[in-house]
Design a protein around this nucleic acid. Structure first.
Lengths: 106, 106
DNA sequence: ATGTTATTTGGTAATATAGCCAAATAACCA
DNA sequence: TGGTTATTTGGCTATATTACCAAATAACAT
């Protein structure tokens, strides 16, 4: 296995790992609609602020979101266009699978 | 937060979590080109057979790949079309970021 | 300056993941 | 039947992740 190829897989898995959490997916999908401060996201998620802040820092380190401080608030927004198409593709797939499963049972 | 919406995020994160490993990304990209048995994938990955087998079962449980036994070999193939577009999108992004980084340094 | 709000960071405990070895299972051949 | 190859499963240890609390930092208002 080529060293460069390996590095490429690791870079991709870092990004994907950052997405791989229900809360972080929620955040990504909300930020796809519009930017939000940590306090707004905290309400949406329904967890401790520190927990949400840490989720955001994971997304930021992966290059999926970016932040901007305005006053006392920090606003996060989505900067990775790849993610949203993929997530909606998965959504369709999940609905399709659920329907197939239903058809099997009924 | 709606219960159904939450379940949807969990379903998506299960699929994404299954992708979130360098070895499993390698497997996905190789299976995108053509089906392979566990023994072939083991050689490509360069790890213990049991390790590769476990990676494959994670991908299978997530619905990303499917398997078919022919003789003593089990052949795996990719069945989730979403993944490949997403991975190539990430690849482009990573190359772009690397170039930008290079331009900054030089 | 002091208090309040927004956010991040450090610490900690519980849980999940990854990799290897050894053993079990299955298919094939002699 | 007995041996070989391919694959999966169980067990174990090391490492990573997550969530919360408490404390630190920063901006703003009084």
């Amino acid at each position: 296995m080529n060293k460069q190829t390996m590095a490429r897989y690791e870079a991709k898995s870092t990004i994907i790992k950052a997405m791989a959490h229900p809360t972080r997916l929620l955040i990504i999908e909300e930020l796809a609609k519009q930017e939000h401060c940590v306090c707004e996201l905290t309400k949406m998620v329904g967890a401790d602020t520190s927990t949400v802040s840490k989720h955001l820092s994971i997304l930021k380190n992966a290059g999926i979101v970016t932040d901007e401080k305005r006053g006392q608030m920090v606003y996060y927004s989505l900067i990775m266009p790849c993610t949203i198409n993929f997530l909606s593709c998965l959504d369709n797939l999940i609905v399709k699978q659920a329907k197939e499963h239903l058809a099997m049972v009924v």
